[in-house]
Design a protein around this nucleic acid. Structure first.
Length: 538
RNA sequence: GCGGGUGUAGCUCAAUGGUAGAGCGACAGCCUUCCAAGCUGACGACGAGGGUUCGAUUCCCUUCACCCGCUCCA
């Protein structure tokens, strides 16, 4: 399938539009149309139902180490700025960058290294991206090349000090960029904020600066104590949240895959430290199975465990659920969901101050005065186990899914073309969306075969009967074949048609989207028939 | 952010320094007894801004968006 065809269908049938299209569009933002809003809502609701409301805390689900509780939360998008400092987003997302006018490359200001060199009456700062021995060697090579010296004349170079960060240099005109041939090609450092900044209150000003959340998870951590104190949940338990997040992606591309405003479906699952590896494996497998159950059963879906080198130091396991989107290169996959074992990093960071992920055991990151780099809340976020009389900080398993990415994967997987004989028996191309019935925007469509002989009245009565139970669509315009095709393109799994026979024996036809199979049921049995079809009982 | 390409109707595509065409779809009507039928009718577009010109959709500049490659992807 070509992505262009799916994008065209999404627009034609009202799944997805580019944001602010009449003004020329806005990069990285997308709007869901009348079909898209139903599809995405079904994705979201399937997730919430399967993970939260339908979960029975009294028995252990298949594969789970034991019973557990699930509950939900809906947090504000704007939170106290300190949240993002303790979560690590402020440091990680908030960089100063320099661009090289000559090589057109961009570097993080604090990750360019170099040392001062003087030779032949010229003194400048020669840079490299490497550190240590490699960095010393490369700066020497580059200095020699700059002056046109041979290696044997290396002693002509007078070095002033060791390798230091570019952040120590004030005059960019005296800097030789990491891949430049001339001095002064690097721009002044520019603030590069991957979080959306906003201002609280009608008056601006830096003291009122805040950020739109780059993930929903932190709202769960900062409410951990509130949930414990208000709901009587006990370990192990999970808190789920669905909501919008915002990131200034550097390169939004590939339809909705990398959007700047996107929706997450996240669970923070709290458990006893000793049991966390088992829970991690449960959630990894449970979440993978969820996508399979909703139709991503092809070989385009995979579960990939991160290798040890990819893991954060405090994490004992992370896995990605990935999908081979059509816009990706052969053999490449895009992330739908990450399941991470986060230990006690988040709760402790919000207690004690931002932890340094490079330390083990984890310690609070300190500034040059020995004070916490980012102060925590000082609140006690530990858990008291009434059975064992133990107090400890729970470990966390985080299944974090992208609602828009899942929706996009379901769209890609559903897109399908086949050939159907037309009224003359000639094969004609048919485009259909093979959504899982739970995800399909409409569950059924109701038609009178022709607009006469009382057929519309019967069809309208059936429509009215179905409407309170399912999202259904009524259509009496143009020929029956065309109406079927219209429903195929928006993925309606079943069509109910009132025909001449209905008027004599009271039965209607039900038509299956994928197989084109038709069968008759009594017109009064439509609600039950559709209900059983959707439940997979027929 | 860089380089290349592309922006014409809802979609797919024409043509043009001088009134912008078509197919499909959508809409209305007629007709139609099961997989995009037929007839009739009406609606509908040069991404945005600026410049050159008597006149610009066409040439030039800027900008926005999309596609491809690079970079980035926390």
């Amino acid at each position: 399938m070509e992505m262009d065809q799916l994008v065209a269908l999404c627009k034609r049938r009202g799944f997805l539009f580019q944001s602010s299209e009449i003004y020329g569009g806005l990069n990285g933002f997308w709007d869901y149309g009348p079909m898209g809003v139903e599809l995405k809502r079904n994705v979201r609701e399937a997730w919430w139902r399967d993970m939260v409301t339908a979960h029975n805390e009294q028995t252990a689900p298949a594969g789970a180490p034991g019973p557990y509780e699930m509950t939900g939360l809906d947090c504000a998008i704007i939170m106290h700025p300190q949240v993002w400092k303790c979560s690590g987003h402020y440091d990680l997302f908030h960089d100063f960058m320099v661009d090289c006018r000559e090589s057109k490359h961009r570097y993080r200001h604090d990750q360019v290294w170099g040392r001062w060199v003087e030779a032949r009456g010229q003194r400048f700062f020669v840079t490299t991206e490497a550190l240590g021995h490699e960095g010393l060697e490369e700066t020497e090579q580059r200095a020699l090349k700059f002056f046109g010296l041979r290696a044997k004349n290396a002693d002509e170079l007078v070095w002033d000090g060791p390798l230091v960060s570019l952040t120590t240099v004030d005059d960019s005109a005296k800097v030789l960029g990491p891949e430049a041939k001339a001095l002064g090609s690097l721009t002044e450092p520019r603030e590069f904020n991957l979080m959306f900044k906003t201002y609280i209150g009608a008056l601006g000003g830096e003291e009122s600066a805040a950020f739109l959340r780059p993930e929903t998870a932190q709202g769960i951590f900062v409410n951990f104590k509130n949930v414990l104190d208000s709901t009587r949940v006990r370990l192990p338990f999970g808190i789920a949240q669905v909501g919008k997040s915002f990131r200034n992606e550097i390169t939004p591309r590939n339809f909705t895959f990398r959007s700047r405003e996107f929706e997450q479906m996240e669970i923070e699952f709290f458990c006893r430290p000793g049991e966390s590896p088992e829970w991690y494996r449960y959630w990894r497998d449970r979440r993978f199975r969820w996508y399979v159950e909703l139709g991503l059963s092809s070989d385009r879906l995979r579960l990939r465990d991160h290798e040890a080198a990819e893991l954060s130091h405090y994490s004992t396991g992370t896995a990605d659920i990935e999908y081979a989107f059509p816009f990706m290169a052969q053999g490449e996959f895009g992330e739908l969901e990450g399941i991470a074992h986060r230990g006690d990093f988040d709760l402790r960071s919000h207690m004690e101050g931002k932890l340094d992920p490079k330390t083990r055991p984890l310690e609070v990151e300190k500034d040059e005065h020995g004070q916490p780099r980012h102060r925590g809340s000082g609140r006690d976020l530990s858990y008291f186990d009434a059975d064992t009389k133990e107090r400890f900080i729970p470990h966390v398993i985080e299944p974090s899914a992208g609602a828009d990415r899942a929706t996009l994967a379901f769209l890609c997987e559903a897109y399908c073309e086949d050939e159907v004989p037309d009224e003359n028996g000639k094969p004609t191309k048919r485009t259909l969306m093979k959504f899982h019935p739970r995800l399909a925007p409409y569950k059924a469509a109701v038609f009178p075969l022709v607009r006469k002989d009382g057929m519309p009245e019967v069809a309208q009565a059936i429509y009215a009967e179905l409407k309170p139970h399912f999202n259904v669509f009524y259509d009496e315009k143009s020929a029956a074949g065309r109406r079927y095709r219209r429903q195929d393109e928006i993925g309606t799994p079943y069509c109910i048609t009132v025909d001449g026979q209905t008027l004599t024996d009271g039965t209607v036809t039900v038509r299956d989207r994928d197989s084109l199979r038709q069968w008759r049921v009594p017109k009064d049995a439509c609600v039950d028939e559709i209900r059983r079809l959707l439940a997979g009982e027929l």
